[in-house]
Amino acid sequence: MRALVAGSEGLLLEVDSAAQVAALHAELLRRRAELGPVRDIVPAARTVLLDGVREPRALAERIALWEVPPLAGTEGPLITVPVRYDGPDLAEVALLWDVTEREVAGVVGSLVFRVAFCGFAPGFGYLTGLPERLHLPRRATPRAAVPAGSLALAGEYAGVYPRSSPGGWQLIGTTDAVLWDPERDPAALFAPGVRVRFEEAGT
């Protein structure tokens, strides 16, 4: 683990893999009381940012002594999200995966994803859990408007657009699940650490 100072009250902790980020993030939440004041704990692809901390260097020295256990696969709440496999890129994805369009639902449905981090828009979660052979390129030309509720894949990630926005990910399906509702607690359905299973709607 490397510790990089970001300004007078930010500490960026960097590790080598998404799995290590998940483990470190979970440990930081478990031991939050030991961190002293902290405004935000922000996991990302290979880092966790601690923002609004006192004396980031001293904090980094304390965290460096931690023994961070690997994350058990069953840790974190599991939610099931119904999906209609009707995305405009379904045929393209089936071709890249060397399966039929009908089989995409089964491939995705057999996986348990984990929300690694949020970004791009409130409630947009970057979900890990796609095995490497299923990683996909982004579309050559991004769409100007991706409909809200679109289940999308790009690189090592899956995600669902919480609202209509531009996007370059491959769209394979649609869900009616409400990804983001600031009146709800939690506002984001896909908060970091949540595990997600996509189930074909109507089955």
């Binding site: 935000d40 828009a121 409130p122 409630g123 939690p186 506002a187 908060a191 970091p192």
Partner: peptide
Amino acid sequence: RPGWAHLGV
């Protein structure tokens, strides 16, 4: 809105 960055806010 400090404290919500982990949800993308």
